[in-house]
Amino acid sequence: MDELDPEIQDDSELAIEGALRPGSLAEFIGQQKVRGQLQLLLDAARIQQRPPDHILLAGPPGLGKTTLAMIVAHESGRALRMSSGPAIQHAGDLAALLSSLTPGEVLFIDEVHRMARSAEEMLYLAMEDFRIDIMVGKGAGATSIPLDLAPFTLVGATTRSGLLPNPLRDRFGFTAHLEYYESEELEQVVKRSAAMLDIALPQPARAEIALRSRGTPRIANRLLRRVRDYVVVHGAGTANEVDPAIVDAALDLYDVDAIGLDRLDRAVLDGLIRRFRGGPVGLNTLAVTVGEEAETIESVVEPYLVRIGFMSRTPRGRVATPEAYRHLGIPHSDGALNLHDL
């Protein structure tokens, strides 16, 4: 059998990723309140023939912040320029980016809280007055040259809005707080994506994927694609018929259990319970125990475990709850610490 050209393969995957993203607020599933607020903001800007106000999108990863930024640009009829906070580590980086914007362009900065402090301070003036000051020279002979910018709309995305300095947060005209999705909304996401991937999913199969998606559309789409791959390999080369048993088999193969816990989630809970009698234990100690970075545990694993009530953060450290013991099938011994004792 002829091998598929890697470049064609990459283009196909990119095309699928792009196709799964909704292109308008009407197509965007979930976040009903945020959608209504954004629609009003965009309609008002269109009627007044001005760029939309600066927008801050805050919330956990995978809920659609990048997609909403693309929709803002599309529905405004404006071009979109994309960058990220970690890529802007000097004021000069931001100055080069801002000075190249065309009138009305939408600038999307992902993880905006991770920009360098000097770039943040330059952004204050740019957002408010559409100008920046360029310093020329050093020491007593240094001079400031003002540079006017084309009016633009900044869309910032952050997973940790508490790390944004107040002067920067206050310059956004609208802040949207994205929430985790309910299972019914995730079923709609899976239904739409399955139709675009030409996969026929009955409602029980959609519900099974939704339950394991941790309230996150990005994870739902990723699991759906893994189910598709499983069917292609084990289903005589067709991905057109999927039932809940196939979904179970596919996701079990990838170590995703019935409520969405993966290998790392279970390793954290298992280490917390078996090695430290349920806690409390410090984050760094727990990270060393499971062989993972502390930042990964804190930003990827803990939010979901805390949200579903399997872990609690206390002043003395992380603690496993009785629900975590039950889920892992570990007896909740008398020696385990009780949250009420902390």
Results as ranks from 00 to 15, higher is better:
A195R: 08
D252G: 13
N240A: 15
D257L: 15
V190C: 05
V232H: 09
L186E: 06
K191W: 07
N240I: 12
E241S: 07
N221T: 10
Q203H: 03
A200C: 07
V189N: 03
V232L: 15
G235H: 10
D257K: 11
A239G: 14
Q188Y: 01
R206W: 00
D198G: 09
Y254I: 11
S193H: 08
A249H: 03
E208G: 06
A207H: 06
P202R: 00
L223P: 03
L253E: 15
L251Y: 09
D243R: 03
R225H: 13
A207E: 09
L186Y: 01
L201K: 00
R228M: 15
N240T: 14
T238E: 07
A195Y: 05
A239N: 12
D198E: 11
A210V: 05
D248S: 10
I259W: 04
D255V: 05
L251D: 10
D198M: 12
R214T: 10
V233D: 00
V189R: 04
V232R: 08
R206L: 03
V190R: 01
Y254C: 09
A220H: 01
D252V: 14
V233H: 04
V231N: 07
L223F: 06
A245T: 02
V189K: 03
P217W: 05
R214W: 08
V232E: 14
I209C: 12
V232W: 08
D252I: 15
V233R: 05
D198F: 11
G215W: 08
L211V: 07
D248T: 11
G215R: 08
N240R: 15
Y254S: 13
V242T: 06
I246W: 05
L186H: 04
R218K: 10
A205G: 07
I209M: 09
V190G: 05
L224F: 06
L186A: 05
L197F: 13
P217D: 04
R228S: 15
A200P: 00
A195I: 14
R212T: 04
A207V: 01
R212K: 03
R218L: 13
A236T: 02
A239S: 15
V232A: 14
A250C: 06
V242N: 03
L253K: 14
A220W: 00
I259V: 14
A249P: 03
D198R: 15
L197A: 14
R214P: 08
R226Q: 14
L211D: 05
E187V: 15
E241V: 11
R226D: 06
R226L: 15
R192M: 05
N221L: 11
P204F: 00
